Structures are given as structure tokens and as C-alpha cells.
Amino acid sequence: MAAPRPLPIRWRDRLLVPPAPRDTSVITGFPARTPERLLVEIPDPLSGRATPLAVWHYPPGMAADPAGSDAAGRRAPIVAIHGFRGDHHGLALLADCLPGEEIFLPELPGFGDSPAFPDAEHTVAHYAAALGSAVEALGLVSRPTLVGHSFGTVIASHLAMAAPERWDGLVLLNPICEPALTADDSTAKVLMSRIAAGYYEVSAALPGRLGHAVLSSPVVVWITGTVMAKTSDRHTLAYLHDQHQNYFSSFDHRTVLVEAYRASTTGSVLDVAEHLRLPVLLVAGADDELGSVRGQRKLARRIGRASPSVQLQILDGVGHLIHYERAPEAAGLIRTFRSETEPSRSGG
């Protein structure tokens, strides 16, 4: 399909967000794909008790990739991990932009259709253990490409560190390159991070219903989307706000959200950078509120000490919402990266 033409944003669209487009091809240039939900059983990382985890599966189609060759049947699948407060919907546009690819989108325990851990705390280590068990339960024959966005990049990097032989390559979109409360040299970024930390800690201390209401407030969700949005396209702006309002509060209970927030702000990909012994692609936004360009370059250098190859792509005019605002471009980078790692895939 031809690339869609941006629809300019009017001043009133910032305050009164227009309805989201019914046809997302006006954003991506690709038809929307419909996944099927799988439920796999995994052990609780602390007690070992069985608990279900939802995985949304995009079967390999017959659509040809933009290079003109049929992607179905010859590529290993993609396993993609969503970010904090999200679920599989957040990566739907990216899946649409990779027609023909088989994609598995697990939902982190406590979010979307995956219930919270029955016993374990919701930490990076426990999330990585759970997703490792889920991928094992799927019984994938070939080595997948592992993709993560935002908080999902921290979890994905821990997965890749634990078993690099399981993955053909690692793609990190908007990687968390530094702990949120120590973000680069920007006073504004540090201030925003401290305000967010206070919001979650106060919500955790409030009585049950009030705390949950504060955490799921549509106004707070709107502010978050408004601050992060950099797009100049009206359709994309409407879509990302609609996604946030519909799915940003699909958490199991507030304890999950507070624990996951603490995990997302106290760790970063930098913690395991020198242990990533597989090809890595980093895709960052030049205006990312959660990671400076300087921090991303530092991360790439640290990864390069162990990785056989590391690439850093900085996209101008976008911040932390690459998966919404630049999905076609991100998908193109993933496609190129996978084609470059095909020799290792076939050789594995």
C-alpha cells in the first residue's frame, strides 16, 4: 500500500481529541491484522504455582514483504514485549506493518488478559522468568527475534542475557538506557520522573478504591499521552489517545501497577548491556523523555563490548512513542535487521 498522507493537527485537537480512525491503514499504510489469543501455563517465579499467561498470536500470512519476497514460511517468528501499563494492543500497529511475519505478543502478568502472579512480586527478574517459561511452553522450533518496547526492553534484555542462544537477535525500541530518576542532564526530565514517582507512591498509600481511581484517572492518562505525543498527524494523535484511554488502565490491581512501576524506574538495559552476546538493534527517539541521545549512545557502546554487532538508529521528531508514531519506519528497521541476521538463524 502507498504511504498514508499526514492529516494536520488543529489546535483544538490537542484539547478535544478527535475520534480514533476506524481504519488504521491511514496511519500505517497496511491493513490491520487480527491476532488469536493463546493461554499458556507458567509457574509462579516464587512459589512454582501454575498460573496462565496470555499470548496474542499473529499467524504467518501470505502477504509479501515490501522487498517483494514472500515472508511467510521462511522467517523465524518475532516475540515482542510491550511496555509499562500496556498490553498487546500497544504493539498492534507494529504487527500490522510486518505483514506475513509470525508474531507472538505476550502480556505481562498483571496486565491485559494475564492475571497477576499469585505469589511473586512483579519485578524485572520475575517477569523475565515468566516470559522465558511462556516462550518455552509455545514450543517454537526456530530461534525468534526478540523485540521489546520501553519497560519491555529491560525485560527483553534480561531474557536475552539469560539465554542468548535462544534468540536470533534483540531489537529494543525506545530502550530504557538509564534509570528514570537519574535521566541525563535535563532538569525537566528528572522533575517529571519525580512527579511520576510521587504519583504512584501516593496512590499506593491511599485507601483501596480511591487509590485505584487515582491510578486509572482518564485525566492523568490524557496528560501522559499529551506530554509524550510528538506526532504532527491527527489520525495518529487520536489513535494513541484512544489506545491509552482504553488499555492504559487494564491492570489486575493497583499493587501490580505500583510494583511494576518501581521495577520500571529502578532498572535499565544498561544493567546487563555488557552481557548481551547476540546481535542488537536499538531504535530511539531523539526527543525521548525517558532516555537521552547521549544515554542511548552510551548504551550502544556498552552493548558493543559483548555483542557481535550493535546498531543504534536515532529517529528525529519522535519521543517515547515510536510504536505509535513511527510504526512503519520501526518495522522497516526490524525487517532489515532480521534479514541481516538470517545467516545466524539458518546456521543455528
Results as ranks from 00 to 15, higher is better:
His158Leu: 15
Asp87Ala: 15
Pro35Leu: 01
Arg49Thr: 08
Gly148Ala: 04
Asp96Leu: 15
Gly348Lys: 14
Ala300Asn: 05
Leu39Ser: 15
Leu38Asn: 06
Thr231Arg: 14
Asp184Cys: 03
Tyr58Thr: 06
Arg234Ile: 13
Arg49His: 08
Asp168Tyr: 02
Val171Asp: 13
Ala116Lys: 02
Phe104Glu: 01
Ala306Met: 00
Gly347Met: 01
Ser268Arg: 07
Thr34Lys: 12
Leu312Ser: 09
Arg338Trp: 10
Val190Glu: 06
Asp184Arg: 13
Val269Tyr: 02
Ser292Val: 06
Val171Lys: 14
Ala72His: 10
Thr231Ser: 11
Gly48Trp: 07
Phe84Trp: 14
Pro4Phe: 03
Pro179Asn: 04
Leu181Ala: 02
Arg166Phe: 09
Ser268Tyr: 08
Val310Lys: 07
Thr34Leu: 11
Leu282Val: 05
Pro18Ser: 07
Ala156Ile: 08
Ile223Val: 15
Pro4Glu: 00
Gly169Pro: 10
Phe248Gln: 10
Leu270Tyr: 05
Ser186Tyr: 04
Arg234Asp: 05
Ala76Gln: 00
Gln296Pro: 09
Leu94Asn: 10
Ala204Leu: 00
Glu107Val: 11
Tyr127Asn: 12
Ala92Ser: 15
Asp113His: 11
His149Lys: 07
Gln245Phe: 15
Ala125Asn: 02
Leu53Cys: 10
Asp316Ala: 14
Asp288Tyr: 11
Phe248Ser: 12
Val214Tyr: 00
Pro4Asp: 02
Asp44Trp: 08
Thr255Ser: 09
Ser47Cys: 03
Phe111Ser: 13
Leu312Gly: 13
Ser307Arg: 00
Ser69Arg: 09
Pro60Tyr: 06
Val190Tyr: 00
Gly148Glu: 04
Ala64Ser: 10
Thr236Met: 04
Ala300Ser: 11
Ile322Glu: 09
Gly348Leu: 03
Leu173Met: 12
Pro175Ile: 10
Thr341Asn: 08
Leu278Pro: 04
Ser157Arg: 11
Leu159Ser: 09
Ala2Ser: 14
His122Tyr: 03
Ile334Ala: 11
Arg12Gln: 09
